[in-house]
Design a protein around this nucleic acid. Structure first.
Length: 1037
RNA sequence: GCCCGGGUGGUGGAAUGGUAGACACGCAGGACUUAAAAUCCUGUGGCCGUUGAGGUCGUAUGGGUUCGAGUCCCAUUCCGGGCACCA
């Protein structure tokens, strides 16, 4: 019988479904093992080949653990709220719930075809009201709790209220806003309810507050940094500004220390732990208040980790958004400061952080007073100081900090050394802490360790500052001005948020007519009719993508519970995730937020562990190979005209007078070619205003104007002669204004990648093109023209008539149009082959570009393995004979290696061990049950369909999933002799066959006796002989 | 820019500090075939040499630790991921 996956795979998938093979029940008497994959966002592009990489690995582990006697929970669901569905809804008007449902159906089909052992009865979807009811419920718990620093845990706000009423907030150690005032019990009790509620917001673990966002006025929406390119929106190229908006926040900073400490107790990759530590960015230092000269009420608070350098602070820098900038700026400096502030507002945070070469900034005209020596230091603003980090102000110490040094050097500000150990301050800053302080008044002569406490004590005694621990971690913005997310279960009364009753959960997302912000700039939910609670308007923003994914792993334990997010018995049995697998790109997003929520739920006694996942493994990303096309900008046509049309044209016409355009002319006419009083302007058909303006200038100058539309240049891009003809005619004509009246056919030009070198790089926009339209980097023009992107396009082809695309290896994603689906491969080679091929690609932790060359190796292996069970005439034929010593060695080597390698998630080497065993058994002509049955069992996690078929052919009638994993016997692995390599001074020179139980002494003697060894020792005595039993012998001379 | 990974034949990759290149792909040669496909066999890191010798270089680059380094340490370089509203 030939191996034909299509004959067996569907059959067994049906059988598993019928027999509920993968249904998981809680068995308190059985050891449990909870294996979790990061659930996918159901994108419109379908499941891509990167998704299953992790799912296959965990599926293998899950099936393996089951065979080792564990009750395994390996569930799957969908992170089904998200921006792409909303954008699709904006474009098409289709409700995100509908497109999401369609995408899920597709995902499910694709997942089913791969033969996973998921228990689908436990599926969760974050966009189901039955699920987000509990996301909202957790939000409400966060609102109702504050972080008590004394108890080091979350406590009910109702307790806080009682304590306020009794003794005010003086004795309360809690995490709260920096600007929380001190008040007595009497003051508290005298407050109105509204005042009290506003004050409590400063303590709650989730609260509305101001935060900076990328605001795009033209689109009327907030954009992610990702959606902002070069200061304008990626879609549409509209202006984007940094704007303060009232947003819900999560007080994750309350848990900063616990989130750092918790990392020590979990088996997560060091790189993830390190990234989280850096993200939280705990730094110990001091905050210092600087008075401002001439402004009695204004103080600038700075945080520094190097308070010891304070006498070297020769200026101060504020973020352009700093609230005092407006007030401090002197009239003389105002124009300059305003211009700089506007410019800075147009830059994204990433741009600002990335820019280090160019130092920019302006002087405000104001001076701060150094609290230690009363010195006046100038206050500047510069965008390397970020408003969102710390206080948005830094004291600049150019002798110790490189960025400050650069700034000081650029703007000629003084650089004062403060330690006698600092060197070469004319070359660079020296951040050393060595030596003794100089120029530093009260700490002169002290070392670092003494100086810091001296200064902090002084600050605290004088009320000018204090020792402080600062975190880079900011409270997490929790509002999204979007539709497709969980509604926030809160409503507003007199600008104070209140929660709805728990009994009114879930607060179901309402339908709206359009998925866009309202005309007044409110989020889409502002369009919902009757969106209010007992007459008060609901919160209009929705929750971010990470809300549902921060706790979903508990829902799988008890997915249909309507009374609790998870029942007590279920959580007591399943406890926590034993093995979590997913991409490292979630290192500081999902994985940190989930830990935060879990610590909170732990404080409330709702979950048994502080950490939700005991072990985490990162799956490497399967990267896509993206292709790019180049769309010409207007500038391109000017260059094209010069190079392709005018140059040959001049050669034709002989010498001719061309005016050198001066600066002003260039401004009036972008493309200022002028000959015989004719000016040529290149612009788009649509730029009526510009054309009118240029025509007016031309008239005023007494010149004639010819307008060449970019669209007509596009039409004739491959025939420059046509344009040359037009110009020739224009030169001879006496008309004042010459422009084509033909309607353009093409509106965009795409230039082949191998022609780009002729033009200025800025003349093109590089755009992703769907890889399905490209074959070996050549764009399929016929297919391309069917796409909206190229509907009105012309292509400038290379001399071979090809449009060549450039390529890059990057993340596989719908937005990069480089998604490859597994479907075709599964259909062609079968699911088992696909599963094993993905594993065979390499370690799951490595990133690698997708590439199907090599799949025939796995496909051939499955055929050979299958072939072991069938005789020459194609009949199933397995004997019951005993195994020979060699067959035993082959089998048990394979058992040992595969078992060890699954345990360390090295699935790629497992596949090669199967190949080796199969090749060996073929060589030995083995068709004995005693060898093949254990192999079928071991193959089952990898190729479940094939294994199930062979298992049943071997005469079993229950599933192979419940077979016991084979155990290897060390006895069979032993060999009588070992082939020892012999090194002379670390270089391999000979080998020698020695008994496997040889003593060190005998081995040395045998090695030294060898002729080759003697030759390489060149008569010198052996100074030392290193003998590693079973490994090697090294002779040192 | 900052943080985190990674760099091994033509390709994917293997290698608890102990014979670098397992297992595959590809390629070359051969067998079977009228032919092709499929299948099977042999070879396959570079260089020098050889007729069944052997030598030498080699794990991004340059240093270091060690009897011994792809593996550990330092520096450089290139590539990938993250950088707070993509998920």
């Amino acid at each position: 019988m030939e191996y034909r996956p299509s004959d067996i795979e569907q059959k067994w998938r049906n059988w598993w479904k019928e027999h509920q093979t993968y249904k998981v029940e809680d068995h308190p008497d059985k050891p449990k093992y909870y294996i979790l994959d990061m659930f996918p966002y159901p994108s419109g592009a379908g499941l891509h080949v990167g998704h299953p990489l992790g799912y296959i690995a965990t599926d293998i582990l899950a099936r393996y653990k089951r065979m080792r006697g564990f009750n395994v929970l390996h569930p799957m669901g969908y992170d089904s709220f998200g921006l792409p569905a909303e954008q699709y809804a904006i474009q098409t008007g289709i409700h995100p719930a509908i497109s999401t449902e369609q995408n899920i159906v597709r995902y499910r089909e694709q997942l089913d075809n791969i033969g996973f052992s998921f228990d689908w009865s436990r599926e969760v979807r974050t966009s189901d009201a039955a699920f987000y009811k509990w996301t909202q419920w957790i939000f409400m718990q966060l609102f109702n709790h504050y972080y008590d620093s004394a108890a080091n845990k979350a406590m009910p706000v109702s307790d806080l209220v009682k304590r306020f009423a009794q003794s005010g907030n003086a004795g309360i150690k809690a995490v709260c806003d920096d600007d929380t005032p001190n008040f007595s019990a009497a003051e508290w009790n005298a407050m109105s309810e509204r005042e009290q509620l506003l004050l409590l917001l400063k303590y709650r673990l989730t609260y509305p507050g101001e935060a900076y966002v990328n605001w795009c006025p033209a689109l009327g929406s907030v954009l992610s940094n990702d959606e902002v390119k070069d200061g304008v929106s990626e879609r549409g190229g509209h202006r984007v500004e940094r704007k303060l908006m009232n947003q819900w926040n999560m007080r994750i900073t309350a848990y900063a220390d616990r989130l750092i400490e918790g990392l020590d107790g979990i088996d997560w990759p060091d790189s993830i732990k390190e990234q989280q530590r850096n993200w939280i960015g705990r730094s110990v230092g001091a905050s210092v208040r600087f008075a401002v000269d001439g402004h009695d009420q204004a103080f600038i608070e700075v945080f520094t980790t190097r308070v010891d350098t304070i006498y070297g602070a020769t200026f101060m820098v504020l973020a352009p958004e700093h609230e005092l900038v407006e007030q401090l700026t002197t009239d003389k400096q105002r124009t300059e400061v305003d211009a700089y502030t506007r410019w800075a507002a147009s830059r994204s945070e990433i741009d600002r952080m990335a820019e280090t070469k160019k130092v920019t900034g302006v002087f405000t005209g104001a001076y701060a007073i150094n609290p230690f020596n009363g010195e006046r230091i100038p206050i500047w603003i510069a965008d390397y100081v970020l408003a969102g980090y710390g206080t948005g102000a830094v004291m600049a110490v150019p002798s110790g900090d490189q960025r400050d040094w650069n700034f000081a050097t650029q703007f000629k500000l003084p650089i004062v050394p403060i330690l006698d150990a600092q060197k070469d301050l004319d070359q660079a800053a020296d951040p050393t802490k060595e030596g003794r302080y100089i120029n530093s008044d009260m700490i002169n002569g002290m070392p670092y360790a003494e100086a810091v406490p001296t200064l902090i004590t002084w600050l605290e005694q004088n009320g000018l500052g204090k020792g402080k621990t600062q975190y880079k971690l900011r409270n997490a913005v929790f509002s999204r001005q979007r539709y497709w997310g969980e509604p926030v279960p809160a409503y507003w009364v007199d600008d104070v948020p209140r929660l709805i009753e728990e009994s009114d959960l879930p607060l179901v997302l309402p339908n709206i007519d359009k998925y866009l912000p309202t005309e007044t700039g409110e989020p889409p939910l502002g369009r919902a009719e009757g969106w209010n609670y007992k007459g008060h308007q609901y919160e209009l923003s929705t929750m971010p993508g990470w809300a549902g994914s921060s706790w979903y792993f508990y829902r799988y334990m008890d997915p249909h519970n309507d009374g609790e997010f998870c029942s007590r018995p279920a959580i007591n049995y399943w406890q926590q995730v034993d093995f979590y697998l997913g991409g490292a790109e979630h290192a500081v997003g999902h994985l940190l937020y989930s830990r935060f929520w879990n610590h909170f739920l732990y404080d409330l006694g709702l979950v048994p562990h502080r950490e939700f996942a005991r072990k985490l493994v990162n799956q490497g990303m399967i990267q896509g190979r993206s292709n790019f096309v180049y769309r010409a900008k207007e500038q391109f046509f000017e260059e094209y005209l010069m190079i392709k049309v005018l140059k040959p044209f001049f050669a034709d016409m002989g010498p001719m007078v061309i005016a050198e355009p001066d600066y002003e002319e260039e401004f009036q006419y972008d493309f200022a070619f002028e000959a015989n009083d004719l000016v040529i302007e290149v612009t788009s058909w649509r730029q009526e205003e510009k054309i009118a303006r240029v025509y007016k200038s031309a008239l005023a100058d007494g010149k004639r104007l010819m307008v060449l539309f970019t669209e007509e240049l596009i039409d004739h891009i491959n025939e420059p002669d046509v344009t040359a003809g037009k110009i020739r005619a224009a030169l001879q004509s006496r008309e004042k204004y010459i422009a084509s009246t033909e309607k353009p056919v093409c509106e965009q030009l795409f230039v082949s990648e191998n022609l780009l070198y002729k033009y200025h790089p800025d003349a093109f926009t590089k755009l992703h093109v769907d890889v399905n339209l490209v074959d070996a980097d050549i764009l399929n023009l016929e297919k391309a023209r069917t796409q909206p992107m190229f509907e009105k396009a012309n292509f400038k082809l290379d001399p071979k008539g090809h449009y060549t695309c450039s390529y890059e290896v990057e993340k596989m994603s719908k937005s990069k149009y480089n998604v490859v689906n597994p479907d075709d491969i599964v259909a062609e080679h079968g699911a088992d082959c696909f599963r094993m091929f993905e594993m065979f690609l390499g370690p799951i932790t490595d990133a690698k570009p997708w590439n199907t060359q090599g799949i025939s190796g796995v496909s051939g292996f499955l055929k050979k393995f299958w072939g072991l069970f069938f005789n020459g005439s194609g009949a199933f034929s397995v004997s019951d004979e005993d195994l020979t010593k060699e067959e035993l060695r082959v089998l048990h080597t394979c058992i040992k290696k595969v078992t060890d390698d699954i345990e360390r998630m090295s699935m790629n080497t497992c596949v090669s061990h199967f190949m080796i065993a199969t090749n060996e058994l073929r060589r030995l002509n083995t068709s004995k049950r005693a060898a093949l049955e254990p192999l079928v069992i071991m193959l089952a996690p990898f190729g479940p369909h094939t294994a199930e078929e062979l298992w049943h052919q071997l005469g079993h009638d229950t599933t192979v999933c419940d077979a016991a994993w084979p155990v290897y016997n060390e006895e069979y692995l032993k060999t009588d002799t070992v082939n020892y390599p012999i090194q002379i001074n670390g270089k391999l020179r000979a080998t020698i066959e020695l008994p496997s139980d040889v003593t060190a002494h005998d081995a040395e003697q045998a090695a030294l006796a060898l002729e080759m060894v003697q030759k390489w020792m060149e008569g010198k005595p052996a100074r030392k002989v290193v003998f590693v039993p079973g490994r090697m012998i090294n002779v040192v001379v």
